[in-house]
Design a protein around this nucleic acid. Structure first.
Length: 583
RNA sequence: GCGCCCGUAGCUCAGCUGGAUAGAGCACCUGCCUCCUAAGCAGGGGGUCGCAGGUUCGAGUCCUGCCGGGCGCACCA
């Protein structure tokens, strides 16, 4: 609808003689927007004001000329100049009737953007370290990323979703040691648990599933003799480091590897199930360790080396990140010969591009923002555009219970898991609340509010609108009447009530909202839109009866109601929230 | 110290890439079920858009500088 108006404007402006050099308005849709005030019509354009200077004309004069050149359209009832030079479009009823018809025809597809082949988007999100269950912070990443993926797809982009599994490095060793010690503990071999170990209850669960016989042929003394003191008095990092070495020694490299692998798989299974239950599904789980195994890190470093982007200093290999705007150069190979995490990340992002994805969209925690510049630098150094990488940062979540802030501490194991949250408030409320706020805003998540089955809760408000529609149709069937969509569309000119006009106008905004929310990476636009739509539906519901005796009027109203159901259902699906038929 | 994000109604937040008189929800008042689900509707009060400059026909939105809050500044991942 909006693009039709923009098309009309473009035709009018293309013919203007003294405006040949205004290429920045190639995309005129940016100058057309919904009028905020109904008195200003349905759409307004500021294009005359924006072009006035380049044309050396007065805005209102230019506007008048543009209006004169506007091709006739059956959509537009009236065009007028207003204020400093706005061009206001008043659409005729037929324009909205046509949209309602389109919704009924297209159903769930209404509002989707035209499918395109590029850019191919690789959306990476969650990617939580597989060292424990997901907590409420990861939940926000999951909900945001999944919704973003749905939005991008709805807008027409090809999207692949990926979870980067940090299954390499020291944290896996620490995980292995933590499980090992819990296994020994079960076997009656008590060793003080290291400060730097993972002490959550889930470690004990994993330990319980381990075949202990082979691991238990050691004494407490074998394990802990001669270790450097643990924190807080000693060095907890040195302590756990020595424990890791001890584990490899006593279990053998293979034995320790198997233990780590079992722990990793157990945790990954849990994460996978958790996310699947939350409606969050990935196309691929990409193993960090596979980068090493398949030589991709070496390959990436080789590319950098060939491009003279590496140098050696203090025994380490450095990447010239400052050449690409980073604040300092970064180590990729440590003095001890081990590659840094950053080296993996360069290789990973390089691989993403190599696999043919043009646009790399990473959803990261706000605490990772310092990381963006160097990964982008890495891509540029390998010959790709820095803009190929886009990072959306997600701010932290604070849990409240009825206004009371809940303390969370990973160290003590007293964090609320995503699973607990989902069980308490339900998947729908969780998905909804997570994306209700802008991702770069801190989120206060109130458990009581999310759970409340009252009118305080915006999830139910929207779902209720959907359920009400279904209920209307149950009533219709009970009265042995049928909805005739064709007759309804034909009779839409009977829908002249203020609530009907408002509803039609809002329904027709849906495609614009999809586009807006997708391009701004801002699911909250969709949330607010659905709330508005539900609001208008509820108002309509209260003001007028749908199932009336007059066949034409009844079918017209039911056409509107059906269109509302389609759009709410489609919008909720994008949010990953169910659209119930009864509540 | 440097970098990123945030500051809008009593509270929690939107604000469509610079538009016309700044909007929701909650909370607080007043009404509405003989009628398709009252998890609903109708109406009301409530604002120095952190502060100060600047750009512009026009600034909550862009620029600069302050103030306040969060996060980050590893040869950890």
């Amino acid at each position: 609808m909006k693009s039709s108006i923009a098309d009309l404007l473009r035709q009018a402006i293309d013919g203007l003689p003294d405006l040949d050099d205004a290429p920045e308005f190639a995309s005129l849709s940016t100058t057309v927007e919904r009028a905020r005030d109904p008195r200003h019509g349905d759409f307004a354009s500021n294009v005359a004001m924006r072009l006035a200077k380049a044309a050396g004309r007065k805005p209102r004069e230019l506007a008048a000329e543009i209006i004169e050149r506007l091709p006739a359209s059956e959509l537009v009832a009236k065009v007028e100049i207003a204020g400093p030079g706005f061009i206001n479009f008043h659409l005729g009823p037929a324009a909205f009737h046509r949209e309602v018809e389109a919704i009924l025809e297209q159903g769930a597809d209404y509002g989707r953007g035209e499918r395109r082949d590029t850019p191919r988007v690789l959306l990476e999100f969650v990617s939580a370290n597989p060292t424990g269950p997901l907590h409420v912070g990861h939940g926000r990443h999951a909900a945001y990323g999944a919704t973003l993926g749905n939005l991008l797809e709805a807008a027409g982009y090809p999207v692949a979703r990926e979870y980067y599994v940090n299954d390499a490095g020291r944290q896996m060793d620490i995980l292995g040691v933590s499980v090992w010690l819990r296994v020994l503990e079960r076997e009656g071999i008590a060793i003080p648990f290291p400060q730097a170990g993972y002490r959550g209850a889930y470690i004990r669960d994993i330990a319980a599933a381990v075949d202990a016989a082979a691991l238990a042929k050691v004494t407490a003394d074998d394990v802990s003799s001669g270790l450097p003191a643990d924190g807080p008095d000693g060095d907890k990092e040195a302590h756990i480091g020595a424990l890791i070495d001890r584990a490899a020694e006593l279990l053998g490299e293979d034995g320790f590897l198997a233990l780590r692998q079992q722990a990793l798989e157990s945790i990954l299974d849990d994460i996978r199930d958790d996310l699947a239950e939350f409606g969050v599904v990935f196309d691929r789980w990409y193993s960090e360790r596979s980068l090493t195994d398949e030589g991709r890190i070496d390959a990436a470093l080789e590319v950098l080396k060939k491009r003279r982007m590496l140098y050696t200093k203090d025994g380490a290999t450095w990447f010239r990140a400052t050449d690409f705007g980073d604040e300092k150069d970064r180590v990729v190979v440590r003095e001890n010969g081990k590659r840094t995490y950053f080296a993996s990340d360069i290789a990973y992002h390089y691989d993403k591009r190599q696999r043919g994805y043009d646009h790399l969209l990473d959803v990261l925690g706000a605490d990772h923002h310092g990381y963006v510049a160097r990964v982008r630098a890495g891509l540029e150094a390998m010959g790709y555009a820095g803009d190929d990488l886009e990072v959306q940062l997600v701010q932290f979540v604070t849990l409240y219970r009825g206004g009371e802030k809940m303390q969370m501490s990973t160290r003590s194991g007293e964090f609320v898991t995503l699973r607990q949250l989902r069980e308490e408030v339900g998947n729908d409320a969780a998905r909804f609340f997570y994306v209700m706020r802008s991702n770069d805003q801190h989120l206060d998540f109130d458990l009581e509010l999310a759970k409340s089955r009252s009118n305080d809760n915006p999830v139910y408000y929207i779902q209720y609108a959907h359920a009400r529609v279904a209920s209307v149709f149950r009533q219709l069937a009970e009265r042995e009447l049928e909805f005739d969509a064709k007759a309804g569309i034909a009779a839409l000119d009977r829908a002249v009530e203020p609530q009907e006009k408002a509803l039609m106008s809002t329904l027709s905004r849906y495609p614009e909202i999809i586009e807006l929310a997708a391009s701004n990476r801002a699911p909250q636009h969709l949330v607010h839109y659905l709330r508005d739509l539900a609001n208008e539906f509820h108002s309509y519901y209260n003001a007028h009866t749908f199932i009336v005796d007059d066949d034409a009027l009844r079918n017209a109203r039911l056409a509107l109601v059906t269109a509302t159901r389609h759009v709410i259902g489609s919008g909720l699906a994008i949010l990953g929230v169910s659209a119930p038929d009864s509540m």
